[in-house]
């Protein structure tokens, strides 16, 4: 690397810097850091989780989640956590932020009843930024049965703004499963947004204004079980007639994972659409199995369209469906 501006060695201005340690901006910098901390954690008895490579678990019941330079540590005993913090502080230059309160713009509120996850401040900042504070709040984000089309209405002049807003909406779905579907709808028009699309985006922002206090609540002392629900519409997208499927999983009392997505293939019947929805949700469940390293609990899986699934089991025999069905059969017997 060239010598840094205004710190060029006066006696050897022609020499260059040979990097021994990573520096911001280098392509390999994030990996170099993960290698370093990963190695350290493994030598101190942690295991990398199969569910997520930035999750490290130690059998004495505490885990670490790493998000670039932020670490979340959880554990059953405060003494263990303090020991670990002390070790990490010795090894790396770290700042102890105490109890988890703010993580990537998400507020974490502790109360004796449980833990809240909220994005109030973020949402409020965005409403101010997009000049939505003077608009009236509304109680639903999207009219039922409204189908947006890609080529009706005037083009939006400021497409960057549209992308900006949708980007922040996507970020807000981190604690808001209720926005998932409608954000999925407006994000399909990122390339050439039109007036009707922008109107829907405004509606979502007004809905957010109405529901600023909403977030996810994890109740203390609830039962640690996984519950899942899935459903799908049929040919819900008027442009390509593909179906939109969704699932939601809760762990304990609060939801941890959800999705609302257009299915990759065209379904010939509502049964097929739902069946595919179940298969996609099943893949998600497989992923949770890897978390069992940190939680040893009873499995319980409820799928709302399971009755239909059983019918489909006898009716549908095409190969791709057989494949999906076998994924399903393997996992429901977990």
């Amino acid at each position: 690397m060239e010598q840094p501006l205004s710190y060029v060695d006066q006696t050897h201005p022609n020499l260059v810097c040979r990097l021994k340690k990573a520096l911001y901006g280098l392509k390999q910098a994030p990996k170099a850091w993960l290698d370093k901390i990963g190695q350290y954690l493994v030598t101190s008895g942690f295991q990398t989780s199969h569910a997520d490579f930035s999750l490290y678990v130690k059998k004495t019941d505490h885990g670490i989640v790493i998000y670039v330079d932020d670490l979340i540590i959880i554990g059953d005993s405060d003494a263990n956590i303090f020991d670990l913090k002390k070790l990490l502080k010795q090894k790396f230059e770290m700042k102890d932020l105490g109890k988890l309160r703010y993580f990537l713009g998400i507020e974490v509120i502790h109360s004796p009843k449980g833990i809240w996850l909220l994005q109030r401040q973020y949402a409020l900042n965005k409403l101010v930024e997009y000049g939505m504070m003077s608009y009236k709040p509304i109680s639903i984000p999207f009219e039922q049965n409204v189908k947006l089309s890609a080529d009706e209405g005037d083009l939006v002049e400021d497409t960057t703004m549209y992308k900006h807003i949708v980007g922040s909406l996507i970020y807000m779905t981190i604690t808001r499963p209720d926005l998932s579907y409608v954000v999925g709808v407006v994000s399909q028009f990122m390339q050439t947004p039109r007036k009707p699309h922008l109107d829907v985006v405004r509606c979502i922002l007004r809905y957010i204004k109405h529901t600023l206090q909403c977030g996810i609540f994890y109740e203390a002392k609830s039962q640690l079980q996984v519950h899942g629900y899935t459903n799908a519409d049929w040919a819900g997208n008027v442009l390509d007639r593909r179906s939109i499927g969704g699932f939601i999983f809760s762990f304990g009392s609060g939801v941890i994972s959800w999705s609302s997505k257009k299915q990759p293939t065209v379904a010939l019947s509502s049964t097929e659409a739902e069946y595919r929805g179940v298969a996609i949700a099943t893949c998600e469940v497989v992923c949770y199995k890897n978390y069992s390293q940190i939680w040893d609990n009873q499995w319980m899986l409820m799928l709302s369209s399971i009755v239909i699934t059983l019918v489909a089991y006898y009716l549908l025999t095409t190969q791709s469906i057989m494949l999906r069905q076998s994924t399903l059969r393997c996992t429901t017997t977990l």
């Binding site: 520096l23 990996k31 979340i72 790396f92 230059e93 700042k95 105490g98 974490v108």
Partner: peptide, 14 residues
């Protein structure tokens, strides 16, 4: 639930 923050995070990597 605790949180820590690494200073100069990328400078640590070899």
């Amino acid at each position: 639930l605790h949180q820590m923050d690494v200073k100069n995070v990328f400078l640590h990597g070899d």
